[in-house]
Nucleic acid binder design. Structure first.
Lengths: 337, 337
DNA sequence: TTGTATGCGTTATCAA
DNA sequence: TTGATAACGCATACAA
C-alpha cells in the first residue's frame, strides 16, 4: 500500500509531473481542460503531496515551533501557557501555520531545535546567557523571544518590574510588614539568570526596601499548584509566619492558598496572597486572587505576528514592554492586628 | 549565508557524504579516528542535518500530530486539553517525539492533515460519521482516537454513560426534581453525532427517567467559561428556575457558577451545579465543584502509548473504557425547601 | 572501514 | 500551455 506520488498522477493523467504540480500550485498557468482532468485524476487516486518532499523543495514547512525549556508535562501545568497558545494560535490560523511544540529532547533543547521542521521559533523564557540561544541564532531561522531578552533577538515582554512593585506596594499600603517572596524555581534556582524572575524579584524587593522594611525572605517554589503548596508547607515548617506572600505566578499562588486553607488558615485574614499573571482562574478561586494582570493572549498574538513578519523577511522593531495592571481581589487584606 | 549541508562537511573533512552520515547515524561502523575528525569538522562548520531532507529519506518525521476539530483558541479554552497534553507529552518525551498541533486549516481539517509532517495522529473528538476520519484512514498513518469511536480505528474512551448517570443520581438523591442539562455546543449542536455528548446526555436522561422524573430541559452552551455563563443567563432569561444543572464539562460548569453568583444566587443553596472531567481547578473554585472525574492525563498517556506502538508496526487492541468516579464537593446540596 | 550511486517526492527553471 | 530535467539534502544498498 505504497504512497501515491505525483508521478503516479502524472502517468494516469498522461501529463508530466510539472503539469500535476501546476494544477495544485499554479492553476492559472494551465488550460481549463487539463487542469480539471488532472484534478479529477488526483482526486480519484487520492493523491496527497508528501509534506517532507514539499518542504525540502520549497524550503518552507508551514509550521512554527514553540520552544519550551521544560518538558510538556511541566510547562502545561501552568495555565499561562494555554492562554499564550490561544493567542499564538489565532495568528497561526490567519496564516495557515501549524504549531509544533518543541520541548527538550533527551534533556537537550538544542538537539530538539535541530530536528524541528519549522519556519521559525517562538521561544518561551529562554534567556540571554543560555547557549541554546546562540545555536538558535546560528540556525538563521527567525526567532521571537517571549518573556526574555537577548541582544540581537527581538523579545516580547511585559513590564515585570513595575507590576511586581505595584503588587508589593499594595501589601505595604495594607499594613503588611512581614512579607515573604515565593520564588520561581526549586532550591538553587537562580532568579538572576531568569529574565522575568529577576525583574519581578527586583520589583518586589525595591518596593519593600523603599518602604523602609527589611529585605524579605524568599522561599523556593516553582510554577505549579503543587510547588505553591510545597512552598507554603516549607514556610510553616520553618516556623516563619508572614502575614503576606508575594508569588511570582498565579498557579503557585493558588497552590499556596489551598495549602494555607488546608492548614486551617483563614484567608485573607491570616495570610494575604498575591499572584502574578492573572490567568483566568485567578478570578474563580477562593478567595479570588489579587494579582498582576498581564495580557497573556495578546503577548502570544504579538509574538506570532512579529514572527510571521520576520518569516516574510521584514525587519521588525523590538516592541515596547506590554503594560501590567494590579488587580485587587479578595486574597489580600489588612494583616491581623 | 546558505545552509551547511552534508556535502560541505564531507568536502571539508575530505571524506564522502556517506562517512559523514555514518558519523551521525552509524558511528560504530567508523574508525575512531575518522569519526572524531568528521565530528570535529561538523561541529566547526555548525552542520545541522536538514529535517525535511532527513525525513524525506527516512520516511519518518519524529513528531506526532494532535488533531483538534476546532481552532486552537477554542480548544485551549478548556483546561482539559492542557491536562491531556501533559499525558501525551510524557510519552512523547520517552520516545523523542515532538507534538504538532493540527487545527483546521481554512476551516478544513482534511487539508491540515495532508500538510502535517507527522508519523501518526492523535485525534480529539473526531467521530464516526466525520468524513475527515475517512481521509485520515486512507493516509495509512496510524491514528488513535480520543473521546470518540469509529469502526476500524482504535479509540481511547472513558465510561461517559456511567459517569453521567452517577452524577444525575447524586442530584436525585439530594432531592432535586427540577434539573436542567447544560449542553456541549451552541444551538443546533447535535449531541447525537458527538460521541461523548451522546453518551453523557444519555446517562443523564436515563437516570432521570428511571427516577420517574420528567425529561429534563436542555440548554445549549459550549466548552468554555463564557459559554457556561451564557447558558445560565439564557436559562434565567427564560424564567425557568431549576434547582440543579448538569453540565457536560467542568469549565462550562464553572462559568455557570460564576454567572449564577453574579446574579445573586447563593451556591449551592439556590442552585446545585455538577461538572464533568474533574480538571484540577474544579477543586479550587468557589464552591468546589462536584464533578465526574476522569483520568485525563492517563488518557493522554494511553493514547500516546497506543500510537507509538502502532507506529512501530504493532497491532494494538482497543483498550477498555477508563473508569470514571463521582467526586462530591460543595457545589451540590439539597434543593431549597 | 570508506566510497559510489541511487532513491526519496516535490518544486522550479528553462526550453519547447 | 506543457514537458524535461535539475535541484533540494540526506540515507543507504552495494561495491571497493
Amino acid at each position: 500500500v505504497s504512497r501515491v506520488t505525483i508521478a503516479d498522477v502524472a502517468k494516469a493523467a498522461k501529463v508530466s509531473k510539472t503539469t500535476v504540480s501546476f494544477a495544485f500550485n499554479n492553476p492559472g498557468q494551465l488550460s481549463e481542460a487539463t487542469r480539471k482532468r488532472v484534478e479529477a485524476v488526483a482526486r480519484k487516486l487520492r493523491y496527497v503531496p508528501h509534506p517532507a518532499a514539499r518542504s525540502l523543495s520549497t524550503k518552507r514547512s508551514g509550521s512554527v515551533g514553540l520552544l519550551t525549556p521544560q518538558p510538556l508535562e511541566t510547562v502545561f501545568a501552568n495555565p499561562f501557557v494555554s492562554e499564550l497558545i490561544q493567542g499564538i494560535g489565532e495568528v497561526c490560523a490567519e496564516h495557515d501555520l501549524t504549531l509544533l511544540l518543541v520541548p527538550p529532547l533527551n534533556g537537550s533543547l538544542e538537539s530538539a531545535i535541530a530536528r524541528a521542521p519549522v519556519d521559525g521559533f517562538i521561544s518561551l523564557g529562554l534567556n540571554a546567557g543560555d547557549p541554546t540561544l546562540q545555536s538558535l541564532n546560528r540556525l538563521d531561522l527567525p526567532c521571537i523571544l517571549v518573556d526574555a531578552e537577548a541582544p540581537g533577538s527581538t523579545g516580547v515582554n511585559i513590564d515585570d518590574y513595575a507590576g511586581a512593585a505595584s503588587a508589593a506596594r499594595h501589601l505595604i499600603e495594607l499594613g503588611h510588614d512581614s512579607i515573604v517572596i515565593v520564588g520561581l524555581g526549586p532550591p538553587g534556582f537562580d532568579h538572576g539568570r531568569h529574565g522575568i524572575g529577576a525583574q519581578r524579584l527586583k520589583g518586589y524587593r525595591d518596593a519593600i526596601r523603599q518602604a523602609g522594611l527589611p529585605r524579605p525572605r524568599m522561599v523556593s517554589a516553582g510554577v505549579s499548584f503543587a510547588a505553591g503548596g510545597a512552598a507554603f508547607k516549607q514556610l510553616y515548617r520553618d516556623g516563619s509566619k508572614p502575614t503576606a506572600v508575594l508569588c511570582m505566578n498565579d498557579i503557585a499562588a493558588i497552590g499556596v492558598m489551598a495549602a494555607a486553607r488546608a492548614a486551617g488558615l483563614l484567608l485573607p485574614h491570616d495570610l494575604s496572597v498575591v499572584g502574578y499573571d492573572d490567568i483566568p482562574m485567578a478570578a474563580w478561586v477562593n478567595p479570588p486572587l489579587t494579582t498582576v494582570r498581564q495580557p497573556i493572549a495578546e503577548k502570544g498574538r504579538l509574538a506570532a505576528r512579529l514572527l510571521v513578519a520576520r518569516m516574510k523577511g521584514k525587519a521588525v522593531a523590538a516592541p515596547q514592554p506590554l503594560a501590567t495592571q494590579l488587580i485587587v481581589r479578595e486574597s489580600t487584606a489588612r494583616p491581623p492586628a
